[in-house]
């Protein structure tokens, strides 16, 4: 029996590797989107203008409270029916990225608020403009305090990336590979266990990387 277990991996190794690669690709692209959009929205939420704050708040409330699967339904079949020719990959990473961006924005906002208000006042009175204050004084400190919340978001994102492969998008990621192998060989348990091992490798690596970053940068309290 244990050999049959290993056989499932060795016989389908290329397929599993491709699935693993796709999952990594999905996670990396979504992460870039999530960080970019999330930082922008967080900046909106802490901006001095009430209108920008409202827009940021609306974004966060919408994307944080809609399940990812519903976002996927809106962004892929929904947009295609509306006549926009969007590919499954783009719809997937956009959904996952924008969804995670709302969480990133909340994490960054709480990080910004953890920086003493006096620092903003001091930097404004020294003649920095508001964007300069953000970029040079507040955000570098905020990023340090939010390393661990961001880390758990990355791990959640790795896990959520499985939804892209399992749902109607049917991207060839690790979960989809596991499913395909399971239904072709009828070795359900080994196929899913190997897919699970792939995800555990990713989340494990992320955990280790975050621990290292934390011990290097995190603010001791």
């Amino acid at each position: 029996m244990p050999f049959a277990f290993v056989d499932t991996l060795t016989e389908n190794f290329d397929e599993f590797l491709r699935g693993f690669g796709t999952t990594v690709e999905l996670v990396v692209v979504s992460f870039v989107i999530a960080m970019g959009v999330g930082t922008l929205i967080a900046a909106f939420r802490v901006a001095p203008s009430p209108w920008l704050q409202r827009i940021g708040g609306l974004y966060v409330e919408c994307f944080r409270n809609i399940p990812l699967l519903v976002l996927i339904f809106i962004s892929y079949p929904g947009l295609r029916r509306a006549g926009i020719d969007i590919s499954a990959f783009v719809a997937g990473v956009a959904s996952l990225g924008l969804y995670t961006a709302a969480y990133v924005a909340e994490a960054l906002r709480s990080g910004v608020f953890s920086v003493n208000k006096g620092q903003i006042e001091a930097s404004l009175s020294l003649g920095f403009t508001y964007p300069q204050t953000m970029r040079r004084i507040i955000l570098p400190q905020a990023f340090r305090t939010v390393i661990s919340p961001l880390g758990s978001l990355i791990i959640a994102m790795i896990k959520n990336s499985a939804i892209l492969g399992g749902s109607i998008l049917a991207l060839d990621d690790l979960l989809k590979t596991g499913r395909v192998v399971a239904s072709r060989t009828f070795d359900v348990i080994p196929a899913f266990v190997w897919a699970a091992v792939g995800y555990l490798i990713l989340t494990g690596l992320a955990t280790v990387a975050i621990r290292m970053l934390e011990s290097k940068y995190a603010v001791r309290r």
Binding site: K159, S161, I163, V188, Y199
Partner: peptide
């Protein structure tokens, strides 16, 4: 640690087939 770090959808699909 194992079940916390696995995608929920993977668990559901696995149980569905298994």
């Amino acid at each position: 640690d194992v079940f916390r770090n696995l995608p929920l959808l993977l668990l559901i699909l696995f149980l569905f087939l298994w």
